[in-house]
Design a protein around this nucleic acid. Structure first.
Lengths: 353, 353
DNA sequence: CATTAGCACTCCAGGCACGGGAGTGCTAAC
DNA sequence: GTTAGCACTCCCGTGCCTGGAGTGCTAATG
């Protein structure tokens, strides 16, 4: 009766919560189903296995743990992990020393793209899982400078420099051969007009201009707008964002991911990047650490995986997301601070430039 | 006695060779050890299994086949495959239709880098194994144009355009702030001096100039040389070449590569790229199709794999290498023409620009 | 002398039974 | 509420067996 009542109220006894915590910690550490005897020993309280069993039965009723088969121990379910992560977990902050080392590593890099690469590697190296860093989104990056260089024929090389001092280039096909001076004029116009705006804003404005074909656009402006339009047109076409993934092979060492067919799907997702990006994109909204456990992510390829992400900021504005992908059974208490700190350090390192 | 004699002379009877061929073909098709009965049937000649057994024993003595255990059929060894590939194999050329489709696919791409990507994907797609394309080596690429753009502070953006219309950029740190005009002067000097030379030649000349600090270099030239030196210095530092690998996950479906530990090493090699590149580099020398079977490559990670490569040419000069990586037991008769044709088509497509 | 049939032998794979170990749920007693 | 006891379930490793596939050797054959 009493337990029934507790169940109905969905109020989970404090002691039961504690047991859940210990059980999950044990399971994360060992990877084996945890039985009542083990749990009784681990819990520290002086209780007999039989007592524990009662509690475990309750936890199972609530869908927080299950047993793989009749006479195995218990294993956390997705909801079990969820509860654990949300309210039971005690994260141990990284030691100052470790933070220092992290910062040092990131400081070595000069170019922003190397920085991202480096961050991704650090994540995977520290966690022995897969690290992922989403490059800053276009709508958060400010335009700094554009230049056009004539190539052979009517081809023009467009060079786009962003405030992060990242450089992109793209070859566009002009309608006729332009002189170096003409191209410079066009670039000047664009630079004057758009400096400081985000790329996304710039893009929108450009397309507006192109469609309206405004009367107040003189020939130079029109030409400039048209060429810049090509730059953005192509860019938006092939990819709305990109990310760097490293340490994927680390995942091959986990036996919960040993199924080759599933592992292949996972690796395909990594190669494709598209879905991973989509997932990371969602994490931009909710600021702070975001965790997807198992099927929560909504991507079948990630069913046996958890994803821990944190957004990183430039000038107090969320610019992108980074994170770690590993098996559901991962050391959340370690991974979370690592992801957290790396995000902060990456933001700081990016700002410095 | 007689057989002994044959062995000593290392002359392999014609019939034995034929059996070896049939055996390997069968093994490649089925993946199972081939027994005498099966081979007798497959060979078409009207011979009893017992006869076949005698021949097989000879083949085993010569190290061309082995049996996994006493009562299994026979499986080709590395040397067996070698002999097969070198002198027994009958490659069936690709149908015109297939070649047409391949060409079409490659023609879609505009930028050379996309072309490489596309070629790699085609290789992996057609063979259901991993495709790899080595980017043209620097010492084969001709310099076309260099430009410098001032960035914030004393940073300068260097843009390098090669004859393949491929664009590279690199941020360099100048000793002081240069004006746009000064940078243009420097670029002009370099463009005048080096157009048409290979990057490697240019690099060497630049470093000579820098060390000699020749009296006949006026200030502009010296400045230009110094900045260009930085461009090349960095570039040579981080990588001497690069390659694109795709379809790696295809390899996860082969059960001869099912061992997770070995597979991981293989994938690590793919991520590292360094050793793969080294291997491909060797294939540049020997023109024509090159095949490494199993341990022949000399890289432990590739022990269970074969690599089929072909160099591709631009203007009748070998520019790079592409190929396919798969399990030792692969359909060489199919893979070889695919690699061959792709190399030719890629060369042609690159020339067209 | 190459070819072949016959035969004993080896080895693997799969099925089956068995027993121990680990863990559970239930009940009754404290 | 906690606990001991007990019957029960299930996995897993082991040993055993059997059928099948294939081999090597030997002796007979054209």
């Amino acid at each position: 009766m009493a337990t029934k009542k507790v169940l109905d109220e969905k109020a989970l006894g404090e002691r039961a919560q504690y047991f859940l915590k210990v059980l999950i910690e044990r399971y994360i550490a060992e990877g084996l189903p945890v039985g009542s005897r083990t749990l009784a020993r681990d819990a520290g309280l002086d209780l007999s296995p039989a007592t524990i069993r009662n509690v475990m039965a309750d936890l199972e009723d609530m869908g927080l743990i299950t047993s793989p088969h009749t006479s195995a121990g218990r294993v956390p379910t997705i909801s079990g992990y969820r509860l654990f992560v949300d309210s039971l977990l005690t994260v141990k902050p990284l030691a100052e020393l470790e933070i220092g080392q992290l910062r040092e590593q990131l400081d070595l890099e000069q170019e922003p793209s190397d920085l991202m690469e480096s961050a991704s590697r650090l994540l995977s190296g520290l966690t022995r899982m897969a690290g992922v860093v989403m490059l800053p989104r276009r709508d958060r990056i400010a335009f700094r400078q554009i230049e056009f260089l004539p190539l052979s024929g009517s081809r023009v090389l467009a060079i786009l420099v962003t405030s992060e001092e990242e450089v992109h280039n793209r070859i566009i096909h002009a309608k006729r051969v332009y002189s170096r001076a003409e191209l410079e004029q066009a670039a000047n116009y664009l630079n004057r007009t758009f400096t400081g705006q985000t790329l996304e804003a710039m893009r929108q404005r450009l397309f507006q201009d192109m469609q309206k074909a405004r009367a107040d656009l003189d020939r130079i402006m029109a030409r400039a707008v048209e060429m810049a339009g090509q730059v953005f047109g192509n860019e938006s076409g092939d990819s709305d964002g990109d990310c760097l993934i490293s340490g994927q092979t680390n995942l091959m060492d986990f036996d919960e991911l040993a199924d080759m067919a599933l592992l292949r799907q996972l690796f395909d997702a990594f190669a494709e990047k598209h879905e991973i990006l989509h997932l990371l994109d969602q994490c931009m909204q909710a600021d702070g650490i975001q965790i997807f456990i198992g099927e929560e992510s909504g991507y079948r390829q990630l069913d046996n995986c958890s994803v821990v992400t944190a957004p990183y900021e430039i000038d107090n504005e969320v610019a992108g997301v980074l994170g770690v992908i590993g098996p559901t059974r991962m050391a959340y208490d370690r991974v979370i601070p690592i992801v957290d700190v790396t995000a902060k350090l990456l933001g700081a390192a990016l700002k410095r430039r």
